[in-house]
Structure formats: C-alpha cells, structure tokens
C-alpha cells in the first residue's frame, strides 16, 4: 500500500524479464540441441551446392558457436528483430508476419475469451446456487464435456450444422471476399466500426461466430468448475450467513458472493489465456483463420524453424503481458493484496 499502484506495476513488469529469458533459453536449447539439422530439414534431401547451404546457415545465424548464437539472437530480439524466414518466401522478416497475423489471432482470442468467461460464470453460478440438484449435476457434466471437446472436431461439427445443414454462417476466413475493408488496427470488427463500414462489420462478426464459439465453449468448462466450487465455498462462509442475518436482500448477497468467488477466477484467467492461445492454433486451422496459428502450422510444413522460434518468443512475451495485466486487475479488486 505504501508505494502505490504505479510502483507495483513497475516491479511486476520487471518480473516479466526472467520469465521470458527462461522460456527463450528453453526454446533455444530445445531447438539447437535436439537432433536434426534445421537447414537440411528445410531443403530436404535434395542435392544443394555447399555454398548455398553455407548461405542459408548464415541467414539463420547458425554459422557461429551456440553460445554466440544465444546472445546474438537475444540482442536482436531486444531490437524487435525476430529473424528471417528460412523457407519460401525465404528471407522475409518474421516480424512482418507477426504484424500481419497477430491482429487476427487477437480478435479471435478476445471473442473466445469473452464467451468462455460469460458462459463459465453463468453455468458455474447456476450450479453453485442449485447445489446438489440435478441442475448442478448437469452443469458439472457440461464442464467436463466442454473441457474434453476436441477443438477441431467440435469446430467441424459446428461447421457441418451451421454452415452446411442450416447454411447460415460462414465456415472459414475472416471476411467475405467481395467486401473490402480499410485496415487500421487489423482487428476487423474494430476497423469496420472505425470506418463506418456496416457490411464489413456484419460480415466480420458472422465469420467470428463459429470460431469464437468453438474456442469459448471449450474453454468455458474450466471456469464453470472453478466458479461453481468457489461459489459453493463462499456461500457457506460466515460472512454470507451474516449478510442473511442482517436481512440483506438475496440478489445483493449473490452479487457479493460472486465478487468474492471471482477473485480466484481472475488468477485462473492468466493461465486460461495461455491455454486459449494453444486452442486458438487448432481453431484457426479448423476455420482457415489467417492468424498466428495457421502461420505456425504453415511453417512447420516447411520446417522453417526460425519462424517457429520467433513466433514462440512472441507468444512468450504476449502471455507474460497478459499475466501482468491479470495480476494488476487482481490487485485492484482485492483490497487484501498489498502493493
């Protein structure tokens, strides 16, 4: 409490650095020390002139000893340089792909995240309030089923039903091909609002429905469980009983209980967001969503490990940032956290 929120955020932000360093080191060690020559992996078994191989090695920064590579790459990362692609198209900065692909992934994850939190809160609250009833059992089952849905399968079932049988929703891409949209942020929904483009807004929202529902429903299972268990605990706590004994109205007590139950849920959100990003890769592939996930999968086919490494470092940074935001929200909501 003494030094204020600004200081807390600053200190917490500093803690991102070791996290990223550790992940960078792990990824670096894994990618360099595991068996297999990445360059040969790119070019395959074809016969390639040695000088061209050398050239490739140089481009990937692989012509130096590992420890120099380690600091070299780190140094370049600090300048926002994520290296260049090793496969077709060769030599393009990975950064460019991040800039063009990240907004698509962000848009998908924001919608998916929102849906999962809302669904999780609703189902979890209903289950806790109706604890021990058939509704409660139903919600627990929902949580398990949602959690164990295999994303591509669930996404494809939705495509089959809403895209083919009902024919009401698009099953791939982000926008109808005949609609043009001036991109500002790369988040199509936001861009169409900013440019006042109604057609693009409707189209981009329609394209978002199935992918974000897929992601949202699958991820909501964990929230259902956590919200239910927390709320059950909270509802049996003394202060809730005290509220009742004071004649406070039931709906108000439910709100106070939810607020208390929400605190641990916030902690889960950071971790959930990481899982969400993993799920986003599968969702993007299932719905041909042009985001980071489809890019990574693309690069895997080319065995372009420079791009994979860059993407993973970027993900590490993004995940750390999210956990920072989550921590700050937590500190703001819970007066017991000292900062």
């Amino acid at each position: 409490m003494a030094r204020g929120l600004g200081y807390y955020i600053f200190v917490r932000a500093l803690m991102i650095i070791p996290t990223i360093l550790i992940l960078y080191t792990i990824v670096f060690i894994l990618l360099r020390l595991l068996p297999g020559d990445p360059i040969l992996a790119v070019v395959g078994t074809r016969n390639i002139p040695p000088e061209q191989l050398e050239n490739l090695r140089h481009m990937a920064g692989l012509d130096k000893p590992p420890y120099i590579q380690y600091f070299d790459y780190l140094w370049r990362l600090l300048h926002g340089d994520f290296g260049v692609t090793l496969a077709i198209p060769m030599g393009t900065p990975v950064k460019n792909y991040i800039f063009s692909r990240f907004p698509a992934t962000l848009e998908l994850t924001i919608f998916g995240f929102t849906i999962s939190v809302i669904l999780g809160l609703l189902t979890g609250t209903v289950a806790a309030v109706k604890r021990g009833s058939a509704v409660d059992t139903g919600m627990r089952l929902y949580s398990i089923i949602a959690y164990t849905l295999f994303i591509p399968w669930f996404g494809l079932l939705l495509q089959y039903f809403f895209g083919l049988v009902l024919g009401v929703l698009p099953t791939s891409g982000r926008l109808d091909p005949d609609i043009s949209l001036k991109t500002i942020t790369g988040l199509y929904v936001l861009d169409s609002i900013l440019t006042g483009n109604i057609d693009a807004l409707i189209s981009s929202l329609a394209h978002l429905v199935l992918p974000s529902l897929t992601l949202g429903i699958v991820l909501s299972g964990a929230y259902t469980r956590l919200v239910r268990n927390n709320l059950v605990d909270i509802l049996s706590m003394d202060f809730i009983r005290s509220y009742r004994a004071r004649g406070i109205r039931d709906w108000k007590i439910t709100i106070y209980a939810l607020k208390n139950a929400f605190i641990p849920v916030i902690t889960l959100m950071g971790l959930q967001f990481a899982i969400l990003l993993g799920g986003a890769i599968l969702t993007e592939t299932t719905f041909s969503w042009p985001g980071m996930g489809t890019f990574i999968v693309d690069r895997i086919d080319y065995r372009d490990y420079n791009s994979i490494q860059g993407m993973i470092i970027f993900f590490a940074f993004f995940v750390s940032l999210i956990s920072l935001v989550v921590d700050v929200i937590y500190a703001l909501l819970d007066p017991r956290v000292k900062y």
Binding site: L23, V27, L30, P35, A274, G278, I281, I308, F315, S323
Partner: peptide, 18 residues
Amino acid sequence: SMYAFPALILAIAIAAVL
C-alpha cells in the same frame, strides 16, 4: 515459466524439431 506458457504451442515446437 513453462507452466504459464501454452502447452500445445511448446509441444508443437518440440515435435516440429524432433
């Protein structure tokens, strides 16, 4: 640090190399 990172993405990287 590892726990906070998306498991699937890390697994993808390792599997891709191996």
